[in-house]
Nucleic acid binder design. Structure first.
Lengths: 130, 130
DNA sequence: TTTAATGCAAACTATTTGCATCACC
DNA sequence: GGTGATGCAAATAGTTTGCATTAAA
């Protein structure tokens, strides 16, 4: 009962790529389109929207006006370079102990969080492109 | 050499309001427009953009697709209710010690951060509107 | 035939800009 | 007159949806 779904397949594949864990829709569309010889933005959008509905990916906001996505299991914090825009994952679990403190401070039941550091990456500070 | 600037004045005033520290442009526009008997979205936008250029306010992203702003001196973390959308400030300085650890882990020089918790606020969990 | 993915185009939302006007200095 | 804030309208960017087509099962 299912037609072939090259776009969706490619999108799922890209999220499995080990060297890249955060994607915007247009970034996905560009790569998928190159692989398949054409892919519409809306098809990629629907692929990602579907994965989001299934709980496979989470939408994250990096402050550049576009939506970004990552595998839910990959969840971690991010740091973005103010100069070149590169986004790198922050290792570790900064907020492990903070969550319960915030819960008792605010009365909220916390279901998720999103943390973004900004700064200058080593490359940019080396080349003085700041 | 300056004409009157009722919109800008109102916007600055609203950011000084103690009971509200996070504003989106359309929220500002609505209140300013009510106060002045009319105010264009673009005028409010330019007022906020000006304040941002002067470093008076910071743009923050609450994940609802709209830009929000707060006084720079007010900077702190936020927690948003998944159910009603209410945003409340998180007291305390969760990240005070984390920043230098992240810097040495990533090699970045950190200039700022933005943290958003999501969860269910006390009111919503009380009224079971979850 | 039924189902679901795709492409194309258009609708929609929010942000941003161009331009003429207007009020103050 | 000169300067800058404002309103209106339109441009832009990104997201989302409608619809016809198409390729399997």
């Amino acid at each position: 009962m299912a037609p072939p779904s090259p776009v969706r397949d490619e999108v799922r594949l890209l999220f499995s790529t080990p060297d890249r864990h955060v994607w915007s829709i247009d970034e996905l569309q560009q790569v998928v389109s190159a692989s398949l010889g054409g892919a519409d933005y809306s098809s990629v959008f629907r692929a990602v929207a579907g994965m989001q509905r299934e709980g496979l990916v989470d939408r994250i906001d990096l402050g550049d006006g576009k939506a970004h996505f990552e595998l839910r299991e990959d969840h971690h914090e991010h740091i973005r370079c103010d100069s070149c825009g590169r986004v790198v994952g922050v290792p570790g679990c900064i907020l492990e102990n903070a969550t319960s403190a915030v819960e008792s401070d605010t009365g909220f039941t916390i279901t998720s969080h999103q943390l973004l550091f900004s700064g200058i990456c080593p490359d940019c500070s080396a080349t003085a492109h700041n």
